[in-house]
Design a protein around this nucleic acid. Structure first.
Length: 109
DNA sequence: GTTGAGCGTT
């Protein structure tokens, strides 16, 4: 039995790789009603293009919806399409912008 | 039971 213990680093490498490949395709969705969940957001954005990933941020104390979420499109053209398109949910208009990096000094660099 | 125009989780 060889105990290299490097099988865990592979998964982190894929995660880091995802950040590099999702740059410019990660969009942040604002204006989400407090009654809308992550799947509601996913279904709403799926109409504009295939989503590589979608998650909605909620309060860690109560678990309530924060009113915003992140959406990653499988293609940059679909991301721009969603940026240029308008989203209506529950009779409200959602705002889609390009998401920034979470652990970097700036959105670009 | 509430609120808003802002960027997350190692």
């Amino acid at each position: 039995m060889d105990a290299t213990g490097q099988g865990h680093e592979r998964l982190e490498d894929i995660g880091a790789r995802k950040i590099m490949t999702t740059q410019g395709k990660k969009l942040v969705v604002w204006g989400i009603p407090w009654d809308v969940g992550d799947q509601g957001l996913r279904e709403q954005m799926w109409q504009f293009g295939e989503l590589a990933d979608a998650m909605q941020m909620k309060d860690h104390a109560s678990g309530r919806s924060r009113g915003f979420g992140y959406v990653t499109y499988a293609s940059s053209e679909d991301a721009e399409k969603a940026l240029s398109a308008q989203h209506i949910i529950n009779g409200g208009m959602l705002q889609v912008k390009v998401a920034r990096s979470k652990g970097r000094n700036g959105p670009n660099t």
